[in-house]
Design a binder for these strands. Structure first.
Lengths: 189, 189
DNA sequence: TCGCTATGAATGAAGG
DNA sequence: CCTTCATTCATAGCGA
């Protein structure tokens, strides 16, 4: 993945404690072993993401990071990682959340309450805060969004394994059988 | 003692208090806002963990959460976070013990050795418990257990290097213009 | 109520 | 791109 970055970072990136800053960090004022994005930085990044930017190119990363450096200490790799993580986590989150009630048979609580108590992050309730820097970015990376939909799961049937633990320790719960049958289980092993 | 709560709230759904008697929650009268595992759920998870499962795959997470949803409200991400935290904390605790007494005073928790946990869910100094159920688990989960003690990989970058503003010096860019001019231009829109 | 601990949740940073 | 590790934040639970 770093081949496209031309190696403008990825060195060792130790502690880049900006002692002279005195307030560059986010409100928490943590020990700064790693990048602590300020609210403005997060806002800009989130806005860019919402605008469709998912995999910025090297040039875009440069531009973004230099622009964001005005709000606080930041490096190019931070921007790179931010987009990587944000994209991956959005997908992961959707995946993990979606399965919540796909195959869950609730015997006692059929659609009672239990609303989405946690889906509150960026994409959901983020208001339209189009800041001034947003328009400057060309949102030409929309085609990247569709490429992700076309990809297929590579961890489908890597190892069809069934596990059931019924002999580990004293158990009060019934012997739970957690058969993993991702693709198909032709014959049980 | 300084307070680190300086604004910067991410967002959260309002805590919806269940009003005393929930239903599928644990006996402690928990409510929405944060997953509170029931005793059965904790037991199952702990049992799985003790059986050697440390990093369940996505499929396993799905299955486990589906099964555990019968004991109470749970989502897939809860299982994911549970294993992540459990593994991380076990390692963290062990590491703290190993480096031990002359360690630097990072924050405030060197006293963790005083309470050795009354519960059985914490292994403490138990390496890898190999029991007969072990073979039922995918080998995928075990390579993680073995590799963790073999590789002491990234734990070096805690020294001060502090050349933070190097990037801003290297990157020569227009101050307030983020237009992409030299890279691939946006064709559409 | 206050302080501390345990722990769920989030995220930056890497590895592969 | 996907997975994982480390660190941190936020909060429930409990004792003094």
């Amino acid at each position: 993945m770093e081949e496209r970055m031309s190696g403008f970072f990825i060195a060792k990136a130790g502690n880049v404690r900006g002692g002279g800053g005195g307030g560059n960090n986010a409100g928490t004022g943590t020990k700064c072993g790693r990048w602590n994005p300020t609210t403005e930085q997060v806002k800009v990044l989130t806005d860019l993401f919402r605008s469709g930017l998912r995999t910025p190119s090297t040039d875009q990363i440069q531009k973004i990071s230099s622009q964001l450096s005005l709000y606080g200490k930041i490096e190019s790799k931070n921007v790179f990682y931010w987009f990587q993580n944000h994209k991956a986590r959005e997908r992961q989150k959707r995946r993990r959340v979606s399965v919540g009630e796909k195959n869950v048979i609730r015997r006692q609580d059929i659609f009672s309450s239990s609303a989405r108590y946690y889906s509150e992050l960026d994409l959901g309730s983020e208001p339209e805060r189009v800041l001034e820097t947003l328009q400057l970015f060309p949102v030409n990376s929309f085609r990247d969004s569709e490429s992700e939909k076309l990809k297929l799961r590579r961890n489908e049937c890597k190892e069809a394994h069934a596990f059931s633990y019924t002999c580990s320790t004293e158990m009060d719960h019934p012997p739970l059988d957690l058969r993993l049958s991702s693709c198909k289980q032709a014959s049980d092993l």
